[in-house]
Amino acid sequence: MELVLSSVIAAIFIFLALLHFFWLFGGQWGMNAAVPTDLNGRRIFNPSRLGTLLVAIGLLIFAWVNLCATGVLKISMDPKYIRYGMYMVSAVFFLRFIGDMKFVGIFKKYRKTPFALRDTYFYSPLCLFLSLSNGFLSLVL
Rank of each mutant, 00 (worst) to 15 (best):
I75D: 06
L5D: 05
G41D: 06
A17V: 03
V8G: 07
A17I: 00
Y84Q: 11
V35E: 00
F15N: 09
W64Q: 05
G71V: 05
L24I: 01
V35D: 02
S48H: 06
I82Q: 01
F25Q: 06
W29E: 12
P47T: 05
L53T: 04
F15Y: 15
F25I: 07
I9F: 12
V55F: 00
A11I: 14
M31K: 14
N66L: 10
A56F: 06
I75Q: 10
I12Q: 02
M88G: 09
M86P: 01
L73R: 03
K74Q: 12
W64V: 06
V35R: 02
R49C: 12
G30D: 10
S6G: 14
D38K: 02
C68I: 07
I14F: 10
Q28M: 10
I61P: 01
V65D: 05
N46R: 10
A17S: 13
N32L: 09
Y81F: 15
G26M: 12
D38L: 03
V8M: 13
L59T: 04
L19C: 07
L59N: 01
M31P: 03
L18V: 15
A56I: 08
R43K: 14
V35I: 14
R42H: 13
V8H: 11
L67P: 03
G27R: 09
L59S: 03
L39E: 14
F13Y: 15
R42Y: 12
I61R: 02
V4R: 11
G26Y: 11
Q28L: 10
L5K: 03
P79V: 13
Y84F: 15
D38W: 06
G58E: 07
K74D: 12
S76P: 01
G51H: 05
M31V: 15
A11L: 15
I44V: 13
A33N: 08
I57F: 12
L24C: 00
L39P: 02
S7P: 05
G51Y: 01
L59F: 11
A63N: 05
G41Q: 05
V35G: 01
A63L: 08
A11K: 06
I57P: 00
A33M: 11
L67F: 12
V8R: 08
R43W: 14
M31C: 13
M86S: 05
W23L: 00
A10P: 03
I9L: 15
L18Q: 12
L67C: 04
I75K: 09
S7A: 13
V65H: 01
S48D: 08
Q28W: 04
L16P: 03
S48P: 03
L60P: 00
L59I: 08
S90F: 06
W64C: 05
N46G: 04
P79E: 15
A69T: 08
I57T: 11
